[in-house]
Each structure stands twice: as C-alpha cells, then as structure tokens.
C-alpha cells in the first residue's frame, strides 16, 4: 500500500492504493467514479479511458501508483455545473450513444482528436477512434457526432 497524491478533475486529492491496483480500481473504489470502466481488460475497447496529464490512456492497464504527482481527468470532470461540453452535446444530439457503456471513452477520445485536428475528415476520425469499441455499433452516428462537435467547437472559438 502507498499513498498517492494527484489532481483529479481539477481537485487535489490523495488516496491509498496497493501497488497492483489500476487507476480504474482507485477511481471506482476511492472516489465513486464509475465512468471509466474495465470491460475488455486489454486496452482494446476504450471503456476505461482516462486522461493522464491531458493524454488518453487505458486505465485498466495503468497502475494507480503511476499517477502520483500527475493530473487525472475522467468523463465526470468534463461537464461543469451540469453544462455539457460541445462534444457531449453532439453525442446526445446525433444519437451516438446506445447502451452508453463505451460512450465516455469515445467522448474523451473525440476530445483528443479535436484538440489535435479541429476539422477532421472521416479517415482521421476513424484513425483516432479505431481503439474504441461499441458493440451496439453506433459508429456512423459517432462519426456524425464528432463532425457536429467539431463545428460547435470551431463556432465557439470564433
């Protein structure tokens, strides 16, 4: 066991974690955050996506000990005061969520994509989201959501 200190969704926190605990374990057991969920347990489905120092990682393959001193953002940290982000709004408006289990991962990866490519084409969208799986297969809607979000974000910057 060790104590880790990190910034979680803009708040300085500390938690007890065993060396073999993943960041998903700690978020769930110590902070009641369930939006990052272990599903395939192999880094392939993206359900456990969190941002560490702003970069997307598979939380199920990331030891909690390694976030010590870092900044962690989860899906719960995006909407401020109940106001959805433009990406979340776009997922809602295009029907890009079905069962919703994979949705947080897609929303976070879409954020990474749009930060790097504000006006992505289909190929770039598929490239960024190829490591996220949706068994309900809302892929066409997800592509539409990313494009809608890109427009919203560009409009917001004008």
């Amino acid at each position: 066991m060790r104590t880790i200190h990190f910034t979680l969704n803009d708040e300085a926190v500390s938690a007890q974690a065993a060396e073999h605990h993943s960041i998903v374990d700690v978020l769930r057991d110590r902070f009641d955050l369930f939006g990052a969920r272990e599903s395939c347990a192999q880094g392939l489905c993206g359900c456990c996506t969190v941002l560490v120092d702003g970069t997307a990682v598979s939380g199920c393959l990331y030891l909690a000990a390694f976030v010590d001193g870092k900044t962690v953002t989860t899906i719960e940290g995006l909407a401020q005061n109940g106001k959805l982000t433009p990406i979340q709004e776009a997922f809602l408006e295009t029907g890009a969520t079905q069962c919703g289990f994979c949705t947080p991962g897609f929303v976070l990866m879409a954020g990474q994509l749009l930060a790097a490519h504000p006006d992505p084409d289909d190929e770039e969208i598929r490239h960024y989201l190829s490591g996220n799986l949706c068994r309900c297969a809302a892929y066409p809607e997800i592509i539409a959501a990313v494009k809608l979000a890109a427009g919203k974000l560009r409009a917001g910057r004008l």
Partner: peptide, 9 residues
C-alpha cells in the same frame, strides 16, 4: 501500431 492510448504509454 495498436491504438493511440497504447502508443501514449
């Protein structure tokens, strides 16, 4: 190679 999250780490 694999996916973006894996390449990040």
């Amino acid at each position: 190679l694999s996916n973006i999250r894996v390449r990040n780490v």
